[in-house]
Amino acid sequence: MSTETPTSAIGDVEGVSPYGVDNPAPVIEPPRQRTGKTPKGSRTNFEMYAWLFMRLSGIVLVVLVIGHLLIQLVLDGGVSKIGFAFVAGRWASPFWQVWDLAMLWLAMLHGANGLRTVINDYAERDNTRFWLKMLLYTATVFTVLLGTLVIFTFDPNIR
């Protein structure tokens, strides 16, 4: 019979746990635990909704973007046929206007949230992080509004 210390309730990944009754594992504080001192402003579920949005928009974008790639780069002569006339032909249909509008908004918000995560991960100084995110949000709002304006005000008889 062995007299080993009882292993922890959490299964060991590899080998024998170094922790036991006489040598308990150190307690790790949850990094963002909410307490009475937590400011009211940060008591939202924003990060959870951002996480959910990435998955839901991602699934929709798989369909929208792969369809877009097929139309633009594969079918009917590939990239060679693209030109003003081709764009005019597609945006004559509300279906493709809505398709492109949905793709623009979802892809920009999905990408902006992805880059927000990347900035939060790698920019360590508070100031750097703040200004990088301001630059990101400015570019995102500008691009989304410009793209929306272009889809809604497109004029096939511009000349």
Partner: peptide, 23 residues
């Protein structure tokens, strides 16, 4: 790949916006 695609998307919206300038 995500960061690369986002940068391309930014350029791609700008180039498509040229349909409002002239054919």
């Amino acid at each position: 790949t995500g960061v690369l695609i986002f940068f391309f998307l930014f350029v791609h919206v700008l180039d498509t916006a040229l349909v409002r300038v002239s054919p």
